[in-house]
Design a protein around this nucleic acid. Structure first.
Lengths: 193, 193
DNA sequence: TTGCAATGTTACTTACCAGTAACACGCCCG
DNA sequence: CGGGCGTGTTACTGGTAAGTAACATTGCAA
């Protein structure tokens, strides 16, 4: 064991990314300085800048990590209900609802798009690709449950989730957001046959 | 006529609010400084601070003005199709679609909620009240078109619009957003009887 | 015309933040 | 044991942003 209090904690780079994700998520990207990140990650600004060329590069890295986790979530659904897209879709609905209720700060990707308004910001590319992937995952499931307009259903569910996550931040969890699962089920049912 | 080039332009206070709204909308609140606002409003920082005690106060004022305009929009719908809630709802759907397509920057209220993360920020109260009003307006229309679950329909349409406006900023106008009107009509139809 | 009220101008303070320089330390591998 | 490599520390630069002070100007109204 090292003389440090926390023996086997991750390396600085990983701590920085994880801490930055958490702080960005809770307070917003523009409201968090690199100094705070370094301090919260129990390291310092120099080490941060040895791993990332700029704050923007760190932002991109945190979004990439978020995208990676999301991919894992989709994979998890497929593993949990193999060959049963309807079950996967229901599970997705439930997980999304849980996420919305528990977390008041919405989707990091969508929030980043709101905060980073420069057209050529490197994060915008990551955000767009991520959202396209999410929609495609949904579309794949919808194509497997036997509806006449799977793409349109996927779009509807996509917008429903986007709306719920952003509304959670403005109108709270007791408004329309609380009906998320019911609405999802009704929309799915209305597309059947 | 005054010796100024533009003869009968609004007073500084109004110019400041309008300019701030525009800049906040286009670039995000945190990305716009009071100096830029004053300059773009063709006045100066001192005059700005004589009318508003702080940047936060100006933010609140811009959101209030946005809320006021939105109320005018709802009133316009009622005037255009008096006693015909279904026509008002369709017109609302069309106007919202127009707004989403033409403007890439989403809803000022929702965006402000993303940027202003402090729980006690004075703007959060304005934002929440505004969103509740929007949902109530929708619910009023839905109660007039003869559906079994008007509140649930209102919630669905509310989230649909919220999702479309926020998605416009991440995935663009050619994705799920492009199906906004169709999805709105399908959802309304699915709630009928 | 006088005089007040709103506006304009310049300059300043204070604070924060992104990014860098120079140097010191400690740990692991050979 | 020695030498890097990653890390820590301090201090700094340059820029920007919120907010204020003091003074000049304009315009309207009595």
């Amino acid at each position: 064991m090292s003389q440090d209090s926390s023996a086997d904690r991750p390396k600085p780079r990983e701590r920085i990314v994880d801490t930055a994700r958490d702080l960005f998520h809770r307070h917003g990207i523009r409201n968090v300085g690199v100094d705070s990140i370094a301090e919260a990650a129990e390291t310092n600004k120099m080490t941060l800048y040895r791993h990332f060329t700029s704050k923007d590069a760190l932002i991109v890295e945190t979004l990439n990590k978020a995208a990676q986790e999301a991919e894992g979530m989709w994979h998890g659904l497929e593993v949990a209900y193999p060959g049963d897209p309807m079950a996967q879709l229901r599970a997705w609905l439930g997980q999304a609802a849980q996420c919305i209720i528990q977390d008041s700060r919405g989707c990091d990707m969508a929030n980043a798009a709101v905060e980073l308004t420069e057209d050529d910001h490197p994060a915008r590319r990551v955000i767009e690709e991520f959202k396209i992937m999410q929609r495609n995952h949904l579309a794949t499931l919808c194509k497997g449950i036997g509806v006449t307009q799977p793409d349109l259903l996927a779009d509807a569910l996509f917008l429903l989730l986007e709306g719920a996550r952003v509304s959670r931040q403005s109108i709270g969890a007791e408004g329309p957001v609380s009906q998320f699962v019911r609405m999802g089920e009704i929309i799915i049912a209305s597309f059947k046959v």
